[in-house]
Structures are given as structure tokens and as C-alpha cells.
Amino acid sequence: MPVIKTEHLTHLYSVGTPFEKAAIQDVNLEISQGEFVGVIGHTGSGKSTLIQHFNGLLKPTAGKIFLDGKDIWENKSEIRAVRFHVGLVFQYPEYQLFEETVYKDISFGPKNMGLKEDEIDARVREAAALVGLKPEVLEKSPFELSGGQKRRVAIAGVIAMEPKVLILDEPTAGLDPRGRDMILGEIQQYHQEKKNTILLVSHSMEDIAKYATKVLVMNQAQVYAYDTVEAVFSRVEELRALGLGVPQITRVFYQLKQDGMNIETNVYSVKRAKQLILEKLGKGGDAQ
């Protein structure tokens, strides 16, 4: 059974005015448990609107969303519980920090869940460790940390709720390459440890190819494609037409093929590229 399923999900903005516009239109999706989904699409393609439906922050104009087979809007008063199961980390989440200490801020979510003190304590420490925050940081004020550290605190605040589905909206926007790799690495590690479902919105095709198992392509308020990384990134021309593109390394191989070289184009990581090139050069054995 899929963990998240949508049926004809539609969301209109400014209903009943001349400015009425569909942010998402007739979206039918099934996301399986344990998947690491990369979400790509243009600004304004409906990504953010879609993910805010998954945890009930936005109410659909039409259609349904199922979490573990249960319609999340069936009982309106239980919508808060849905938010504990589907954790959402917004863009630039460091701007939502407000507590006196890092510890208190991370515990805001678990506290809202009504957990016991010792359970909260365990979760806060575990979440902080997962995102690479040292124990001594916990007693500091979040406002004296660096930008990257603040973001880790904010992500830990959502992870501490131990959601079944974790959605991250461009968690690496504005970070330096090293900070980006570290945060994504931590998220991947978390995914492998907890075997939960992750949705990662990103503009970096390289990151998507590196971490995701599936790719969801949004275009003009609709799902353009939802498939494995290989299947999606093999549609180079289509993605280009959408203005999205494919990972750089895939582009290189695609161009080589266009230029007449007999080579595969399903290459999404530098590691695989190296292996293929060495094979081509007749040194396949050394690649490993």
C-alpha cells in the first residue's frame, strides 16, 4: 500500500475572481513506503503547493489525499496528527527558530505531540546527533549559530517528530557546496537508518541523481513524470524542453552519443562515468 496517495488532487487560488488559477490540477500519485523521491520542476510548477497538501497545510479544492490509505481530510479535527506523520521542512527553515536554546527549539514539535519528558529528551538528542549537531550546541541560543548550523537545528526540529514521511523543500538553498553535501549526506543516512519515506525538492539535478530513488517532475500544475531516476533522466530532450535539464555528467555522455560515439547515456554519477570511460578505453578491470 502506498504511504501517500492522491486522487484528482486540484488546488485553485483566488477562487471566484478573474485571477483564478490552478496551482495543481488533477494530480494522481502513489508514493510507496521507503522511497527517496526527488521533486523537480520550474518555479511556479506547483511543487510547493503539492507538498503542502501532503501534510494538510493546504486544503484541496477538489480531490483527495490518502495517508496510509486514510483520507486525511475525513476528520478535520485530526489534521494536526497528520502533520506529525508527515514532517515538512520549509525553504530557509532557519527563520522559524524562536526558542532560547537549541534544545528547546528542537523539542517544540515533540512537545506539541504530547510526548513524555524522557521520550522528548531522547528524541531531541537523537535528532541533533543525526544532523551533526554536537551535544554542547544544544544549550546555546539558536541565534548565535552560523547559517548552516541554524538550518540543521530547524531540520532536527522536524526529524525529532519522527515522521513517517519527511518532506524537505530545497534544504540546501543558499548553503556552500560543503554544507550542502553534508546536509544531504545526513538526510540520506537518516533515510537508510529509519527506512522512512523522503521527498526532496531540489533544483540540482546532480543532487537528485545522487540521492533519490525516484523522480517526480512537475510541470504547469501537473505531474509530468513520476518514475525511477534512470527512466526520468533518459528523457533528455523532453526535460530540456521543460527547461529543467539533466545532471551535467549525463549531458556530457548524451552529447558524446550525439557526436557519434557508441556509448550509453544512462550515466548519472561521476563514479559511473569513470567506470564507463575506463571500460571504453579497455581498462574495465581497473574501474573498481
Binding site: R80, R83, L88, F90, Y95, Q96, G109, G157, M161
Partner: peptide, 12 residues
Amino acid sequence: KIMSAQKARGAD
């Protein structure tokens, strides 16, 4: 935005 973010953390 902040309201949505805090609601996502279960703020009532």
C-alpha cells in the same frame, strides 16, 4: 510562511 512552518511542527 512562519505560521505554516510552525503549524507543520504541530503548533496549535
